[in-house]
Design a protein around this nucleic acid. Structure first.
Lengths: 356, 356
DNA sequence: CTGAAAGCGCTTACAG
DNA sequence: CTGAAAGCGCTTACAG
């Protein structure tokens, strides 16, 4: 029963408070509070006595009590649509990192793309008094829901998925330019029939990336046929299905721009299983540059958006609105760059020849 | 300036409290508190009036204040050693899920295997008054550190990585039996020289899995040569290096038991790059059964430990010690099962023939 | 430089 | 059935 944290000053199981420290060092709790916040008002000798008592007692500051009194909070809600997706895991790490660096602490919720769950956790986070929320909205989240669940009084930044007409700040990569670069790269390699694989048109991210695909095609004087877009779940299994459909169509594409890396991984896998060699017989590019991409067979040519840093920006952006500096509806669009590896075929001997 | 949440009852930017609700419905705040906790003491008519005021005002319960008063907390610390590893991401999802189901909310920290960072977040979590902590300790964490940073007064359960001699509960898979089954499977397929690849002997998990590998070998009357163990970072890149070393040794192994799936993925990739076909020329098995495993080339034979469920158990186990029912030092070891896919070679025609 | 008092938003005996 | 009072662990003017 000899609890280490309370051993020297108080008995019982009761946690040590500033009152205990005050008594132990013969000052008032006001003074203890002052030394805790590092005030220069306190005489050095007094400070030393108090700090000594703190040390000996194993006192732990109660941030919840302090925050209640100050009517502010050190908690930030981090709501992630699918933590199981390596892309979002990396995003989460970026956000979390920045949060701790600024003295905030994240409450995590993984909505798993479930909007009902999202409503629940949003309410729960508000009850816990979060100072703000950064979230990648669940698929299909609409502006009216968000405004109902998140009054504009609570600082919020949306990340990775735009919600049209929502009044919140947004941080995400330049999907359109990224997809445009990827497609253009394939065109320069000689491809003319380039399909877009994966995702659904209910996802703004897919819409943006398809725009980029279309841009590149049209710049090259190629018409972007609707039949070249094959939708699917944004997963490995989805990629496999999508490419199966695409390869079954009468006018086969010779290259594939994929919604994201896990779709592209599914695509390369399915292709290989059917004796079609990605990077040799056919070109494939992904999006996101997740850790797996470079270890794929073949290594994925993909669009890097520096996910970790983007997560950091999302957090910084939230601090902006928390401290009232920035307007609530600021947007930050991160630049992207193409990472050329092998799946596009650029490194292969046949690169440069015309595909037909 | 017309904030939706405070529109009808209070002016200014001040959030609505039970005092506002009390005033608006003509009762005392005690009564409001009673209806909030669903007490049957309150007369139906009074309750209706109060609930109406709550509804109209957009009142949000302040759990922090309630918890301060009740001296308990709804927060649980979830410290993860590497969220970027798909295995731990899945574990985190399992924990998070169970936490919300019991009305707790997780504070996330990704230590990224950094023990200094781990100390910091542990302290931060204590300051935020978490009711308990579930953590996968950073590599190299030792018992004395843990006991210094986590007095036994705070309910803690360790997961996935044992810390020898630490006084906390532990939840993890049966590493030894899992690795034993995997190795045995390879032996039954005709292999005699089976290497163990990846991880470091400073990791208890690696030690446990090597034990299992040794068990199977010895059961089959094969001596477990130390030279057959190649250590490496437990990553895809680590797997590639390890197998390179292994293939360079004079007495080559014909099969590889890998520390985990990402190591195995690196191994299959490196092998393929060198013209050695995993699942045909050589057998490979992983551990964890992460989502990527079945989409690998070739699909990975691996040990499944139901990570999601194990995460749930870790959380449940924590509730056990929070509610004082269970002893602090209870352990739960989850059963594992072998998932046979293609990388082991079982599905290939040559299966059954002797390897030499 | 230090202390007494009030208050953050709740809950919980205790009266009535 | 309902209200007044005390208190959870802090901070912050305000005196002295």
């Amino acid at each position: 029963m000899n609890e280490s944290r309370t051993a020297s000053i108080v008995g019982g199981g009761r946690p040590v408070t500033i009152v205990d420290i005050a008594r132990a060092s013969g000052v008032s709790k006001s003074t203890v509070s002052l030394v805790l916040k590092g005030s220069r008002l306190v005489k050095a000798e007094t400070r030393a006595r108090v700090e000594d008592a703190i040390e000996r007692s194993g006192y732990i500051y109660n941030r919840g009590a302090a925050n209640l009194r100050k009517s502010k909070s050190g908690l930030v809600g981090m709501v992630i649509s699918d933590l199981t997706n390596p892309f979002f895991a990396e995003l989460a790490v970026g956000i979390e990192n920045a949060l701790y660096q600024r003295g905030f602490v994240p409450i995590l919720a993984n909505t798993n793309e479930d909007r009902g769950r999202q409503s629940q956790v949003l309410r729960s986070m508000r009850e816990h008094g979060v100072a703000g929320i950064v979230m990648s909205p669940a698929r299909g989240t609409e502006a009216w829901q968000l405004t109902a669940e998140l009054p504009t009084t609570i600082p919020t930044v949306l990340t990775m998925r735009r919600v049209v007409d929502s009044p919140f700040s947004y941080v995400g990569p330049d999907n359109r330019t990224g997809a445009r670069m990827a497609t253009k790269h394939l065109i320069q390699l000689g491809h003319r029939r380039i399909a877009f694989l994966g995702g659904f048109s209910t996802m703004t991210t897919q819409l943006d990336r398809i725009e980029g695909w279309r841009d590149a095609l049209e710049e090259a004087g190629i018409t972007a046929e609707a039949a070249l877009v094959v939708e699917s779940m944004p997963t490995r299994a989805g990629g496999r299905e999508a490419v199966r459909v695409a390869m079954g169509s009468p006018k086969r594409a010779t290259a594939f721009v994929c919604y994201n890396d896990i779709v592209a991984i599914g695509v390369t896998r399915e292709l290989a299983l059917n004796g079609i060699r990605p990077g040799i017989d056919v070109g494939v590019v992904g999006f996101d540059d997740i850790a797996e991409a470079e270890h794929n067979a073949p290594p994925l040519t993909t669009v890097n958006a520096d996910t970790l840093r983007l997560g950091g920006f999302a957090a910084e952006s939230l601090f902006g609105v928390i401290h009232g500096g920035r307007a609530q509806t600021m947007s930050f669009i991160g630049t992207t760059r193409l990472v050329v590896r092998e799946s596009c075929g650029a490194l292969h001997a046949s690169a440069g020849k015309e595909f037909v």
